[in-house]
Design a protein around this nucleic acid. Structure first.
Length: 791
DNA sequence: AATTAGGCATTTTTT
DNA sequence: ATGCCTAATT
């Protein structure tokens, strides 16, 4: 990208940047330079109009997008952007509530309940309202609650609007759910928005503060905002009316999360004088890819047509391939990727494999491991959602806020300390009757005043002892926490609670300890600030990060990603996999019979296709396995919605002539028209990092089934398989030397130094038995996985 | 109270 | 096939 300066913008882009007064709606097609416009606009406000960054807020869809914007502005304006507010709606609201939430009864150190906590809370609520979780799924009840909150209804609104038996059930759970949250001084994701709205609604002074401060407000990915978010934006912008929203209705893919595409219509009616600017020139994709995508999306009925165009080269046809099953699909893809890399024109970081559901990543991971392709999975099982990490977080939260019943229930018996379900039930029951948090019940218990207060509780002496010990444990950690920094605190939690020991006894102890180690180092950057402050900030950052936030651009890794997460990204080469009826229009969207759901699937496919700059592959499997079995699947209807002449099917020769060389396909990385058609030079191929594939493989037609290449010569590039499940989202670079002999001194990242007692090759790795010093003892480790270092 | 076995639902996407 | 939940066992 060239420097963001006004002269390099096309006329509508320029207009979008310079239209600063009054409401503005920017309709930005894929690849139309939206991000540039947003950053240029902010830079323009600051530099040309002399607006203080302090008075500008920019809301993005992910923290990653916010960070990217920040860094681009930084390079444009240097320190001139200090004071700029940028982030997601959720993080903005969390901050607002942290400051002024007390006015609406939210304690300063409230905790944020994530999805997992929410489900637990719903389950508990159902139990306490005698609603059978087998008859009504907690998940669907939660989604009803979330839906109500996203529409700014809240409990009260929901109760008033309920119209059937199911609503009645939900409202009972909802009521209890809110009580638990209140008592735990917690807010769920939707509360962050809802409560901020309420705060602004009921406290004019607070609202005024924000209204006056934010002269300019920008909202990115507007098509994916929900009613609550839009209304918060409206509240803030009400005074100055300088609200700029940027979006593309064709890329709206989050309606299941209550995003409401009608916000775009509302915006136009709420701000009738709003200027509307369309960005229609695409700088990203080849003509062919853009045409394919345009034709696909044209099948949607509910949309306004856009006139997307590009000056880019025609480029290669869209390749459609078919494998027998998902394994062969993956093999096909990985082998094709090998050809790209071998050509020297692409590095792995240029390529991405996209799929509808996370479960699909598995086959690709396995294929990558077999072929030695380093890869990066975005998302999947979220790091902070791993059991051991969540347990540790629950301890930290409890230390911060002992009233957090959900966290307390989570860890009161982890590791097991003789407090079973009976005891916990009894404590919970009492807390409900007394309308007190569980921790307070325990406190009263241990004051020895149980009888005098006449707590109606029935527990054996042994249970009481155990519970009291737990209370003392938390109390001690709590008082220590004020003197310790974050890392010290985490360490004392791990040791004092017996958590470390507990992990060591676990079957997957290595993996779990690794994860805790990872967690510990992620806390490091927060450890500077003082005592509890650090803990609060850290907890908040954990609750609000997304997987995509952690994704790095790394030339050496192939990216595996869901279509949803791919929004906003671009890659020279894109493989969209699982192009099958039931998967890409997902079965759930077909089953409902709601055409709008099917159209959203089509938009999802459109988003995926428009991520591609130069090469687009659509792959499907003839049979797909699920729930153990395997069933035949039909090609996705979306394939047939792409004009045949844009498609190349290997094996069907008549179209082969269309395929152009890779060189002809290259699109200059610059958005400026002058260089676009030139066959620009590629990124220099990085010999030391290049991942060479068996050269003969490129001669094999992709459809022919072939044996996996021998792997010896790939050893150096091989990514070590990480047990069955992945340990960290990013698989780190492989280890160079995996040879050990008895007596070798080795170093483990968390266990420290040790001596090799024994070793035996196992698959591609070596299982090493190591004696570590101190109390750590003898362990069997996979050398590559454990990142063992020879000393 | 803790561990284990067997039954069952589950998988769309995530701030 | 896996993981979660309940029931049964020690």
């Amino acid at each position: 990208m060239p420097k963001d300066s006004l002269s390099e913008l096309n006329p509508p882009q320029k207009k979008a940047v310079e239209t600063i007064d009054g409401p503005l709606l920017i309709m930005a097609g894929p690849g139309s330079g939206k991000t540039r416009v947003i950053t240029s606009r902010i830079a323009y406000l600051i530099k040309n109009c002399g607006v203080s960054p302090h008075r500008i807020a920019a809301v993005t869809f992910t923290n990653k997008a916010a960070k990217e914007m920040q860094s681009r502005l930084q390079s444009l304006l240097g320190h001139g952007i200090r004071g700029l507010t940028s982030g997601t709606f959720h993080s903005f609201c969390a901050m607002t509530l942290r400051i002024d939430g007390e006015l609406i009864g939210l304690g300063r150190d409230f905790v944020i309940f994530d999805d997992d906590d929410q489900i637990n809370t719903v389950k508990r609520s159902m139990k306490e309202t005698d609603i059978d979780p087998k008859r009504f799924s907690p998940r669907s009840i939660l989604s009803a609650i979330s839906n109500a909150k996203s529409q700014l209804l809240g409990l009260q609104g929901f109760v008033e609007n309920k119209s059937n038996y199911y609503d009645e059930i939900v409202s009972r759970v909802f009521e209890r759910y809110e009580e638990i949250l209140q008592q735990s001084n917690a807010a769920d994701f939707d509360d962050l928005l809802l409560k901020t709205h309420t705060l602004f609604d009921t406290e004019p002074e607070v609202l005024k503060k924000y209204q006056e401060r934010f002269l300019y407000l920008m909202v990115d990915e507007f098509q994916d905002t929900n009613v609550a978010q839009y209304n918060i934006a409206k509240q803030i912008a009400e005074k100055h009316k300088n609200l700029c929203v940027v979006g593309d209705p064709d890329q709206s893919i989050y309606s299941w999360r209550n995003a409401d595409i009608r916000n775009i219509l509302s915006f136009q009616s709420d701000f009738s004088q709003a200027e509307v600017i369309s960005l229609e020139e695409n700088y990203r994709s080849t003509q062919t890819i853009l045409d394919g995508a345009k034709n696909l999306i044209a099948s949607n009925k509910e949309r306004v047509n856009k006139d997307l165009w590009t000056k880019n080269v025609k480029g290669s046809p869209i390749t459609v391939m078919e494998g027998y099953n998902e394994e062969e699909e993956a093999q096909l893809v990985v082998r094709e990727i090998g050809r790209y890399v071998d050509s020297g024109n692409y590095v792995l970081g240029d390529i991405s494999v996209m799929y509808r559901v996370n479960a699909q990543s598995r086959a690709f991971e396995m294929a990558c491991q077999r072929y030695g392709v380093p890869y990066q999975v975005v998302g999947g099982i979220k790091f902070y959602q791993r059991r051991e990490v969540k347990d540790l977080i629950a301890y930290l939260r409890l230390i911060l806020n002992p009233h957090d019943d959900i966290s307390l229930s989570r860890v009161i018996n982890v590791p097991t300390r003789g407090i079973g379900q009976r005891t916990l039930d009894e404590l919970t029951r009492t807390s409900v009757t007394l309308n007190l948090p569980i921790f307070s019940v325990i406190e009263n218990l241990s004051n020895g005043k149980a009888e005098s207060i006449s707590i109606p509780i029935q527990l054996g002496a042994r249970a009481i002892k155990a519970v009291e010990d737990f209370k003392t444990l938390i109390d001690n950690l709590r008082s220590e926490s004020e003197k310790q920094n974050l890392i010290e605190l985490i360490d004392s939690v791990i040791t004092r609670t017996g958590f470390r020991h507990h992990l060591e006894n676990d079957e997957q102890s290595e993996e779990r300890i690794d994860n805790i180690e990872e967690f510990r180092s992620s806390a490091r950057e927060y450890a500077q600030s003082e005592g509890q402050e650090a803990l609060i900030t850290f907890m908040e950052s954990i609750a609000l990060v997304s997987d995509i936030d952690g994704m790095e651009e790394n030339l050496d890794f192939l990216t595996l990603i869901t279509l949803h997460q791919a929004k906003g990204l671009e890659f020279p080469v894109v493989f969209i996999t699982g192009m099958e009826e039931g998967l890409l229009p997902h079965i759930r969207s077909i089953d409902t019979g709601d055409p709008r759901e099917l159209e959203e699937e089509r938009r999802l496919c459109y988003v995926g296709m428009t991520r591609a700059k130069e090469r687009l592959h659509l792959i499907r499997a003839f049979r797909r396995g699920f729930r153990g079995g395997s069933e035949p699947s039909a090609p996705s209807r979306f394939i047939s919605e792409i004009p045949r002449e844009l498609i190349y099917i290997p094996g069907q020769t008549e179209n082969e002539g269309i395929e152009t060389s890779l060189q002809d396909n290259k699109i200059g990385s610059s958005a400026s028209p002058s260089v676009k058609n030139s066959t620009q030079s590629f990124k220099p191929s990085r010999s030391e990092a290049s991942h060479s594939f068996e050269s003969s493989s490129r001669k094999n037609p992709p459809t022919e089934r072939m044996r996996l290449p021998g792997s010896k010569h790939l050893q150096a590039q091989r990514v070590v398989p990480v047990r069955r499940r992945r340990v960290v989202n990013k698989i780190v670079a492989p280890h160079s030397k995996l040879s050990f002999k008895t007596g070798d001194k080795v170093k483990h990242p968390s266990f420290g130094e040790g001596i090799v007692l024994n070793f035996e090759p196992s698959g591609d790795d070596v299982q090493v038995t190591v004696a570590f010093k101190e109390s750590l003892g003898v362990k069997k480790l996979m050398a590559g996985v454990a990142k063992l270092e020879k000393l």
